[in-house]
Each structure stands twice: as structure tokens, then as C-alpha cells.
Design a protein around this nucleic acid. Structure first.
Length: 554
RNA sequence: GAGGGUGUAGCUCAGUCGGUAGAGCAACGGACUUUUAAUCCGUUGGUCCAGGGUUCGAGUCCCUGCACCCUCACCA
């Protein structure tokens, strides 16, 4: 976080002038007693922080601050550094040296070019104290807001005895403010030379290790606020996630899509194969499930005339937790009337390349030490081709497929041949798909919501996008034939448990299709996995702010 | 669900063969007006995840439980 964030909007802050807290806040109340005063508490760093809080109050300041207007965001300070001038006594400006040069000795440079004076714009910054270096009657702080870090110079002579006493009550993690001139220290570091100080909020808990941060993964997830505040890059990852989601909305909005909000409580958890969370409505005395997909309601809307429609929202699947699975996760589903799965392939590429543009870093990216080239068009290959390539077995040769399944330890008995094929595909092909690659044309019987190819009803017009073995997107030419849909809902594939089936009878959905849904392409994207890939994060928990955890031990 | 790993100071981590509980950072006291994870001197700080067992003696060995991580299974 030492470089300014690309969250450009945050660099300016609306507001009115305000006043140092000492002018507007006079707290005459006695300081509150700390909750406990047991002997062992003297060992606890929290006690020292409570004591400083009391002393801040005793100085007539609110240890939890007041409004602070006309703030200069720290990223903006870095931009304003170009306004720093070095003026000789004769009034001429000397161009400043290159402060990025690690060998620069600014003290020497000033001696060589002086005598003169450095001037710079006045700024008012606020943020969290990340580092503090005391040096007698001097204190250096490293202050961080969400646009970057900057150093604050606090000299006893410069801020006065009063503010210097206040600065001695600062702890790592406190939120403070400073007003003063922007300039450079002898080493050339951009610095706010404080003339007055402000106190905004006391951190009463001890901060994590100032260098290592909070590394305990359990604590990082339970105390995400501390993870965000003290671990480098965490905030940026989540800001990147926001940028990716914004970009996806922008891309779809620009293409004329309309965003909607479907119900999250479903009577029938359809649209995907997954176990749902069960819940209950009391007044209606009715069992309900949390949605596992967005699909069936968005298609109902296409029947109603929403020709380009999408929803970007949370779905819930009551299944295992792993580095790639969280019980609730974010899906995008979008549907385009009169399109097909090829339409959605092109759209998928635009959604991803636009997202990359939004967070920067280029189309060729690193993930876990591997390189992913997102330059479109992405590779395309059929399911059957890849099957043949990776297994050496012709997927249309049923006997050979069964033979191969037994060979790799699968049990093909009483199981539909397409399910067997797919188990082989998942076991032997998916993991080696580095991609980005569109796998197209799936066996029809495992795709009950997908239109079949006109010339080959055994194949469904479906693709999945794989990147480094991870399924990122899934799309169909949507099945809009109500009679076939009803039939597919009735067909339970052999060897498949009911809860594993995507085909759950939904009479209302079939009735909707009977009102005529236009031929359409539909796409689903796992947003969390896309964010993982674009931000180089190995665990879905690193891109979900508050992943599901077991309750904390008391 | 199975296997493996981890759990020690506020944080990050050592802890040998079973023999008085350690370091760095943070905190507290002191020196220092251009530092950069500031430095230097000094001090304080422990339910060794929980419970049980073996033992003269357990952070260490054994059993049970809990939490987290990893791999696998499940899960498009």
C-alpha cells in the first residue's frame, strides 16, 4: 500500500473547513475508570492505551475525534509533490533532483544548490499510524489512508509543546491527522511537516506485528478489519474486486443489459446441481431453500420481454468448503435474447478483458507462478476433441469409454454413459486445461437446460471456460422448448442422485416457457474465482470479505 | 468424510534427549531535531489450545476433544 491507490475518486474529499478539535471540543467530564485494575492488567498493552486515551481526554480532546473537512487524500499528496519548489535566496527556482534515484543525497544537493528555501503546498491529511519513529524532540509517523502512505514530520519546535505532548500519546494503529507543508526530508522522502495535529480515534487493541502483520489465517478471517488495516495488499485486493464487479456491470450496461434482482428464497432450488440450504417461512408455514443459481428466474424475465437481462448476486450451496468453494459465493448470470452460446463466448472475453483493463496489469498475468495469457480470442476446443486428446479414447466408442472408466477406478455400472464420460472428463481432462480455453459442445444428457445441436441431438450447445483447471464460466444456448424441458425435468439420469441432478421439475418454469421464450444465449460466471485469477489469490477466502467460519472459541 | 500439519507473550516465531519458559517487535522508563522495520540502555509481560493419562518431573511422550491450514473426497 505504499503506492497511491488507483481508486482515483477517493483522492478528493468534499467538505467544509473545520477547526482543530481543541477549539470545538472541551470535555470537562472526568475520565472513565478503566474496567479492571487487576495486577495482571499492567502487563497488557491495552492498559497503556486506555491510560493514553484518558490523557487525551484530560487535554480536552475527544479521543474519538470530530469531523475533519478539507482533507487532502494521501494519494493526492503524492500528486501534489510536483508543486514543491526550491528557491535560492536570489529568488530563482532550481529544478529539483530525481527523488526516485536511490543514490540521491538531498541534504548534499541542498548544500550544493543553496542557500535557499523549500516551499510546498499546505495539506491536511488523516489516517492510521502504521509506523512511528521517535527521535528525541522529533517524531516521524508513517500515516496511511486508503489512497496511500505518507510520512509526517513532527518537531517539538515546529508544532509547539502542546501538540508535541499530544503526539507522545499516539500509538501504532491510532487514527490521527496533521496539517502542514508538503516537502522533502534530507533523504528526499515526501513528508508532511506538521504544524498542527488532530486526534481522530484511539485504537484500544494492540496492533499486529508492525512488519509481519497479522499472518494467522484464522485471525485474518475472523478479524478482517485488522487484516485489511494492517496487511499489505489486502485492501487493494478487495478494491480490485470492486473494480472488477464495477467493470462487469459497466460492460453489460453498455451492451444494453438490464440488471435485476431475483428472489433468493426459492421453493425449488433449480438451475444447478447442488444441495441447498433449507429454511422455513413461519407465517406461510412453508419450507424454502436459499437459491443455488439465478437461472430460472432470469429466463422467466426473458419470457416477459427483458431481452438482455443479468443478475450479479449471491448464491448459496450447502456443500464442502475448500480453497475454491465457499458456501455463499457471487455469480453473474446474463441472458441475451436471439443470441446463442457463441454470442456468450464473445461476451465472456469482453467481460474478462474489460475487467483486466479496470484493474490494470495487462492481459498477460501471473497466477501462482504460472502465466495466463488473456489475449483474445481464447482457445476453443470441443469436449470430444479434448476427451480424445487427454485419454486416447474416442468418447463415442461406448465400450472403450466403459473400459477406460474401469481402468482409472471409476464404477460405470448402472450409470448413464454421459455421466461416465463426464466423470472421466472431470478426472482426466479438466485439471490440465490451463487455458483460458472454451470447452464447447457437451454431452446433451448432462445438460438439461441447454438446447441441443440441430444436426446432433446428442450434443448440447454448451461451453465452459477453464483457466488453470478452474471452471470460471458456463454458458448455453438456452433450451426454450417447453415440452422438451418438461421431459428433461422428468428424466432422472441413471446413477445420479436426485440432489445431484440439475433437472428438478419446476412446473411454473415450464409454464413460463410455454409463453414463448426467445432463443437465447445465457452465461454464468463465478465472480470469486475470476477475482482470484485476476488478483493472484490462491484461496477463495482471500477474495471474500467475510468467509463462513466456525464459531470462535470462548 | 479420510489423511497430514499447526496451535507457546498483544503480534511474528524459537524451544535440542522429558529437567527453572526464550527471542524480535509491541508496551513501560531513559538518551537523541531529518528518521526509514530508526538506533542505543534498562524494565515488564506466559491458562505453552482444552481435558485426561504416563512420569519423581510434561510445552515436549500417549489418549480424547476443539480451531485453523494443506491434500484428497464431496462440490461443475
Amino acid at each position: 500500500m505504499s503506492s497511491p491507490s488507483r481508486f482515483a475518486l477517493a483522492l478528493t474529499q468534499p467538505g467544509e473547513p473545520n477547526h482543530p478539535i481543541s477549539d470545538v471540543f472541551m470535555n470537562q467530564q472526568p475520565p472513565p475508570q478503566s474496567e479492571t485494575s487487576k495486577a495482571q492488567d499492567s502487563k497488557d498493552p491495552r492498559v497503556a492505551r486506555r491510560e493514553k486515551l484518558r490523557q487525551i481526554e484530560a487535554r480536552g480532546l475527544d479521543p474519538f475525534g470530530v469531523r475533519f473537512d478539507d482533507r487532502t487524500m494521501i494519494g493526492r499528496c503524492h500528486q501534489l509533490s510536483s508543486e514543491i519548489r526550491w528557491t535560492r535566496e536570489d529568488g530563482t527556482d532550481v529544478p529539483l533532483p530525481d527523488f526516485d534515484d536511490p543514490d540521491l543525497d538531498y541534504r548534499q544537493w541542498k548544500a550544493d544548490h543553496g542557500p535557499g528555501t523549500e516551499t510546498g503546498p499546505n495539506v491536511r491529511v488523516a489516517g492510521r499510524i502504521m509506523l512511528a519513529r521517535g527521535q528525541g524532540k522529533l517524531i516521524f509517523l508513517t500515516l496511511r489512508d486508503w489512497t496511500g502512505d505518507i510520512q509526517i514530520f513532527i518537531g517539538k519546535k515546529q508544532v509547539g509543546d502542546d501538540d508535541f505532548e499530544l503526539a507522545k500519546l499516539f500509538d501504532l494503529g491510532d487514527l490521527v491527522g496533521a496539517e502542514g507543508r508538503l516537502g522533502r526530508t534530507n533523504t528526499g522522502e515526501l513528508t508532511v511537516f506538521a504544524e498542527s495535529l488532530f486526534f481522530h480515534a484511539k485504537m484500544l487493541e494492540p496492533p499486529p506485528d508492525k512488519h509481519a502483520g497479522l499472518t494467522n489465517p484464522d485471525l485474518r478471517q475472523r478479524m478482517r478489519y485488522a487484516d485489511l488495516a494492517f496487511n499489505d495488499g489486502v485492501l487493494q485486493t478487495f478494491l480490485d474486486r470492486t473494480e472488477i464487479v464495477r467493470s462487469i456491470r459497466r460492460t453489460l450496461d453498455n451492451e444494453g443489459y438490464c440488471e435485476v434482482e431475483g428472489p433468493t428464497l426459492h421453493m425449488i432450488a433449480g438451475g444447478a446441481a447442488a444441495r441447498p440450504f433449507a429454511t422455513h417461512h413461519n407465517t406461510l408455514d412453508m419450507p424454502l431453500t436459499m437459491r443455488i443459481a439465478l437461472e430460472l428466474h432470469l429466463k422467466r424475465l426473458m419470457v416477459g420481454g427483458m431481452e438482455r437481462v443479468y443478475e450479479l448476486g449471491r448464491v448459496y450451496r450447502n456443500e464442502g468448503i475448500s480453497p475454491k468453494h465457499n458456501p455463499e459465493f457471487t455469480m453473474l448470470e446474463c441472458y441475451q435474447a436471439y443470441g446463442d452460446y457463441n454470442t456468450m463466448m464473445d461476451l465472456t472475453e469482453r467481460l474478462i478483458t474489460d475487467s483486466i483493463e479496470a484493474i490494470g496489469g495487462g492481459l498477460i498475468r501471473q497466477y501462482d507462478g504460472k502465466t495466463i495469457d488473456f489475449t483474445p480470442p481464447f482457445q476453443r476446443a470441443t469436449y470430444a476433441e479434448l476427451f480424445q486428446q487427454h485419454t486416447g479414447v474416442d468418447p463415442s466408442d461406448e465400450a472403450a469409454v466403459i473400459q477406460y472408466a474401469k481402468q482409472i477406478g471409476l464404477d460405470p455400472e448402472d450409470t448413464h454413459p454421459d455421466v461416465v464420460r463426464n466423470e472421466i472428463f472431470e478426472a482426466k481432462v479438466e485439471d490440465s486445461l490451463d487455458g483460458p480455453i472454451f470447452v464447447i459442445d457437451y454431452p446433451a444428457s448432462i445438460c438439461p437446460l441447454t438446447k441441443r445441436k440441430r444436426d446432433n441431438p446428442a450434443v448440447a450447445e454448451r461451453f465452459e471456460l477453464f483457466i488453470l483447471g478452474m471452471e470460471v464460466a458456463n454458458a448455453y444456448t438456452e433450451l426454450n422448448d417447453p415440452d422438451l424441458q418438461e421431459k428433461l425435468f422428468e428424466t432422472q439420469l441413471e446413477g445420479q442422485d436426485e440432489e445431484d441432478s440439475m433437472a428438478k421439475m419446476d412446473h411454473d418454469f415450464v409454464r413460463a416457457l410455454r409463453h414463448a421464450m426467445p432463443p437465447a444465449g445465457g452465461l454464468g460466471v463465478g465472480i470469486d474465482r475470476l477475482v482470484m485469477l485476476l488478483t493472484d489469490k490462491k484461496s477463495i477466502r482471500d477474495v471474500i470479505l467475510f468467509p463462513l467460519l466456525r464459531p470462535e472459541n470462548a
